[in-house]
Write a protein that binds this DNA or RNA. Structure first.
Lengths: 179, 179
DNA sequence: GCATGCATGTAAGGAGTTACATGATTCA
DNA sequence: TGAATCATGTAACTCCTTACATGCATGC
C-alpha cells in the first residue's frame, strides 16, 4: 500500500473527527498549508482512493437539501497512519524564487540585490501575518502538536525576516566601504 | 514569453559562462539545489525551448570524440533575465514531511512526537553537512551573491537544528511536569 | 434577486522526478 | 577489463494547480 504524503494529511485530519472533503480543505488552509498545501483537485480523488483501499469509510451526511459526504477513519486507516508516523521522513523541499533572484542578482541593475532581499522580506512579512492570524484557533486545539508546528512556522518566518534585515545591513555597509 | 523559473535558473547560470546541459546540472547540484532543484529531464528539453525562443545559442563543442553542446546567453536572453529580476518573486513553497509527522504525532505512540523531531533534526544535520562541504567552492566565485545565498541555507539549517533541540527540551520538560 | 458560502467533482495542463538507453573517455 | 565519469536524451509517471461546471442555502 503506497500512499502519497497528501493521503496521510487526510488520514491524519480524519483521526480527530469525521470530515467532508470541503472541511478537510478548510482545515488544511488554516493549519498545514504553510508546509504542506493541497487543493480540491487532490482531496476529492484521494478520498475516493482511500475509501476503495478501506482506509476511510464514506457516509452521506446532507445538511438541509445540500448533499455532503463525510469520511471517517477505519481501523486499517488508523493503523496505516501509525505505520507512516514510525517511518523516517523523506521529503523536504524548498522552492524559493526570492533566493533565486538574489542568487542571480548580479545580472540586474545595481539595486537588484537589495531589491531582491526587500521583496523576499515582504513575502515573509505577509506569510507571518497569516500565520499569526490563525494562531489563536490552532492554540485552542485539544492536541498540542499542531500549535507546536505553527509556532515553528511563525518563528521560521521571523528568522527569515531578521535574515533579510541583517543581509540588507551587510550589503549596505559593504557598498559604503567600496565607495 | 512565459518562462518557468527553472528556465531562469538556466539563463542565470549561462550569464557567467557558456555551459553544456551536463555542466548546468553539476553547478545546480552544488549551488541552487537546496532551494531550487532540477533534473536532466528538465534541463535538456528546456535548453531546446530556450534555443528555439532565441534566448540561448547552441554550439557544438566536442571534447575528444565525445559530442557536447554548449549554450550561451543571447542579448535577448540577457534582457529576459533582467526583466525577470525586476519582478517580485511569487513562488515560495515548502514541503516538509517531518513537520507533517510532528503535526500528526498524537496518532502514534508516546515516543512519536520526540521521534519526529529527532528524525527532522537528523535530516537538517545531513543537509548542513552537504552545504558546508560546498561552501569553499561557492565562496571562491567572482560573484558574491551565490555565497550570500549559501550562507542563508547554512544558517537556516542551523536555525532548524536549534529549533529541534529547543522543542525537544520543552516537550521533555512538559512531560516531566505531567508525571 | 444576487452575492457569498457550502459542497462535490473533473479536465487539462504544468512541473518535476525516475528510470532507462546510448555511447565515448579515463583511470585503476 | 571494468568502473566511473562525461554527455545527451526521452518516456512514463506522479504530483499538483487552475479553471470550470453544477447546484443548494443563506442573508442582505
Amino acid at each position: 500500500m503506497e500512499l502519497s504524503n497528501t493521503a496521510y494529511v487526510i488520514l491524519g485530519l480524519l483521526r480527530s473527527a469525521p470530515r467532508s472533503g470541503y472541511e478537510i480543505k478548510q482545515v488544511v488552509d488554516k493549519s498545514t498549508r504553510f508546509f504542506w498545501a493541497t487543493s480540491y483537485g487532490q482531496i476529492y480523488p484521494e478520498l475516493k482512493r482511500l475509501a476503495a483501499a478501506g482506509m476511510v469509510d464514506a457516509a452521506e451526511a446532507p445538511r438541509g437539501g445540500r448533499r455532503r459526504t463525510v469520511y471517517r477513519l477505519t481501523a486499517a486507516g488508523r493503523k496505516e497512519l501509525r505505520r507512516w508516523l514510525e517511518r523516517d521522513p523523506e521529503t523536504f523541499e524548498l522552492r524559493d524564487e526570492g533566493l533565486l533572484k538574489l542568487f542571480f542578482s548580479a545580472g540586474g541593475g545595481p539595486e537588484a540585490p537589495l531589491g531582491a532581499i526587500a521583496a523576499k522580506r515582504r513575502q515573509h512579512a505577509a506569510t507571518l501575518d497569516q500565520l499569526r492570524e490563525i494562531e489563536p484557533a490552532v492554540r485552542a486545539f485539544d492536541d498540542p502538536h499542531p500549535h507546536v508546528v505553527l509556532r515553528y512556522g511563525i518563528e521560521l518566518n521571523e528568522w527569515m525576516l531578521a535574515w533579510c534585515d541583517r543581509a540588507t545591513g551587510e550589503l549596505e555597509r559593504g557598498r559604503r566601504k567600496a565607495a
